[in-house]
């Protein structure tokens, strides 16, 4: 991501907005492969807490990541509806479980801000930056980093 250099220019970027615990996040739209409704997820015992399990997407096994857990947020009440954002990372499919999906937003680069240093480090590590919106702030999720860090941390725990 090179938002920093481009803030001065008049370009814009497109993000899919998702909501997690009241906060609006943006995922670069080109990273999103699919958006799914409620899915049947097979739990994987012994896996890290953030890994919700595996699901079948048209014959491919997709690993589901609970974004709430990853961001150290409390779990949703049982029975609440969730959405699944499917992304491809290094030829593997992952699906990020979020509370709800909004729309595809085109945001001007001039509204970009660096992630505030005071943010909780679990958030700071996974955020590429912030876009100032009229009514709220859009936190851009660093999806590859989120998945990468899961792989790394997992092998540490072994």
């Amino acid at each position: 991501m090179t938002e920093k250099e481009e803030t001065a220019s008049g370009g814009s970027k497109e993000f899919l907005t998702v909501a997690v615990a009241g906060q609006v996040f943006g995922i670069p739209v080109l990273q999103v492969q699919d958006v799914l409704g409620e899915q049947k997820v097979t739990k994987v015992p012994l896996a890290a807490r953030e890994i919700a399990g595996s699901l079948n997407l048209r014959g491919r096994v997709v690993t589901a990541i609970n974004v709430r857990h990853r961001l150290q947020l409390p779990a949703l009440a049982a029975g609440s509806k969730t959405m699944y954002i499917v992304v491809n990372h290094k030829d593997e499919l992952y699906s990020m479980i979020v509370d709800s999906v909004g729309e595809v937003l085109s945001v001007p680069d001039k509204d970009f801000e660096k992630t505030p240093a005071t943010l909780d480090h679990a958030w700071r590590d996974l955020s590429l930056g912030i876009y100032r919106q009229k009514d709220n702030l859009l936190v851009i999720l660093d999806v590859p980093k989120m998945l990468e860090s899961l792989c790394m941390r997992d092998s540490d725990a072994a």
Partner: peptide
């Protein structure tokens, strides 16, 4: 998936 590789109890998954 690579994020589950570390669990030695599983050799793979299937549908």
């Amino acid at each position: 998936s690579p994020v589950l590789k570390n669990i030695p109890i599983f050799s793979g998954n299937t549908i």
